[in-house]
Deep mutational scan, measured.
Amino acid sequence: MFKRLMMVALLVIAPLSAATAADQTNPYKLMDEAAQKTFDRLKNEQPQIRANPDYLRTIVDQELLPYVQVKYAGALVLGQYYKSATPAQREAYFAAFREYLKQAYGQALAMYHGQTYQIAPEQPLGDKTIVPIRVTIIDPNGRPPVRLDFQWRKNSQTGNWQAYDMIAEGVSMITTKQNEWGTLLRTKGIDGLTAQLKSISQQKITLEEKK
């Protein structure tokens, strides 16, 4: 169930391209415009997507990853294993993690069937560096609404905000991946996880038929 919630949630996290980005210092504006741009692209490019579902990787690479804190999220997933990894191991892992996100997020976007969304009203940021933004996803086919909290983090150097995690039903996506990959990290280390991520990233994206 959580895996499905995570995939549905990713439908609204794909941010804007650099040329049309919203105010990078306001995570609420980023979330709002990102959702609108993403849904528009999914709707307008269905012919290309249906002809070649792996085209979704391109959308992810162009529109999402430049505005997601990939390395920060990847380091959180590694936890204690990050500090013990060599620079070469980290570089290989982050490259594999990025390719994994292209496949995983692309597969999530393949679930698009006309969903709509509501974003919580903007709250004062103050001096906060981590801000959760509640998004409610509404399914046109009558499924119950899904309420999610996207975690946005302020870059201490640039002042810009980027998304790095999502919490559904009190469970963090980062925590879920830590639990899912924990045994592999304990037995085969970061190299074993890197190899698995490379394998997963090679899987073809498949479209979910409308139910």
Rank of each mutant, 00 (worst) to 15 (best):
G79H: 04
L42V: 15
A19P: 04
Y82E: 00
V70C: 10
G114H: 11
R98C: 09
Q80L: 05
T58E: 14
A110N: 15
G189M: 03
T187V: 09
A88C: 10
Y67A: 05
W152Y: 08
Q107L: 13
A168D: 03
A18H: 13
Q203T: 10
R143W: 07
T175P: 04
A34F: 14
P132N: 11
L10A: 07
Q196E: 15
F2A: 01
A108V: 13
S84P: 12
F150D: 01
Y67W: 04
T86D: 14
K177G: 14
G142V: 09
G192D: 14
G79N: 03
V12M: 14
K210A: 12
S199T: 10
D23A: 12
P15R: 10
T136S: 10
K188V: 08
I13K: 01
T176K: 00
Y82L: 06
L42D: 01
D54G: 08
K37W: 07
D61F: 02
I167S: 10
K102S: 12
M6F: 11
P124M: 15
L16K: 02
T206F: 08
G192T: 10
L101Y: 06
H113V: 10
K102I: 10
S172M: 00
L16G: 04
L10F: 09
L76E: 00
D32W: 05
P53W: 03
A88N: 10
V77D: 09
A120Q: 11
L109T: 13
Q123Y: 05
A22E: 12
N26M: 14
Q151H: 08
Q107H: 12
N155V: 01
A51E: 13
D23P: 14
A51F: 09
H113Y: 11
P15A: 08
L64K: 01
E208M: 13
E122P: 12
S84F: 06
E122S: 09
I49G: 06
S201N: 15
F150G: 08
T38L: 12
T206W: 11
G189F: 02
Y55E: 10
T183N: 11
S156V: 03
K102Q: 11
F97V: 08
Y72F: 04
G79C: 02
A195L: 14
W161R: 02
A96C: 09
R153A: 00
Y105V: 00
V171Q: 00
T129N: 12
L185D: 02
T158N: 05
W181T: 15
A96S: 11
A168E: 02
T25N: 09
T183Q: 07
V146C: 07
I119Q: 12
I174H: 06
P27G: 05
Q103H: 10
T136W: 14
E91V: 08
R57C: 14
R153E: 02
T136M: 10
P66R: 03
Q69H: 09
Q203G: 11
T20P: 08
I133F: 06
L193G: 14
I200V: 11
Y93R: 00
L16A: 11
G126A: 12
E209R: 07
T38Y: 14
N155H: 01
I133K: 01
M111E: 01
R147V: 02
Q69N: 08
M6E: 00
P140Q: 13
G159R: 08
L42S: 03
